[in-house]
Amino acid sequence: MRFSEETLALVNKIIRRYPEGKQKSALLPVLHLAQAEFDGWLSPDVMDYVAGLLAIKPIEVYEVATFYSMYNLKPVGKCLIEVCQTGPCWLRGSDDIVHHLESKLGIKVGETTPDGMFTLKTVECLGSCGTAPMLQCGSKFHENLTTDKVDTLLENLKSTNQRTSYMR
């Protein structure tokens, strides 16, 4: 297990943002890079590798990785679809979007399609309440959703057939 040279250079650049001896500060950004580079989730091996890079104990990485909701601790589908379901989005019909996605993908929230293409998740407010309902896929926000827009998005994701990532 090893980051690409390019990513390693970036890791070193990130570490330099913090004072000497405070390289642990780089943990969150480096875990984002790791998740992007190693199949969209953080396996124990990946976390141990990051611990080594930052010269901290593995448990320090596990403690952090399990605290933050953006880190996946289990494999996820190629495209992770995260629909906001908090009050402001709910007021504008996020339930309908979730139901539409569930029936379209044939899975329930929290599940992955059998072909490993989509994982559907509900999340809490993503700071897009004025353009509700909305969902996030990769780093992209899809706003003012309608069922038609959701259909188009799914089509696009299928035809692009690329792993989504917060880092792209």
């Binding site: 943002r17 500060s25 969150l28 950004p29 875990l31 984002h32 605290f67 933050y68 909701s69 953006m70 880190y71 809490e124």
Partner: peptide
């Protein structure tokens, strides 16, 4: 002055 952006990872 040096200025950096530091991303969180999902935690209100």
């Amino acid at each position: 002055l040096d200025l950096y952006v530091h991303p969180g990872a999902g935690a209100y």
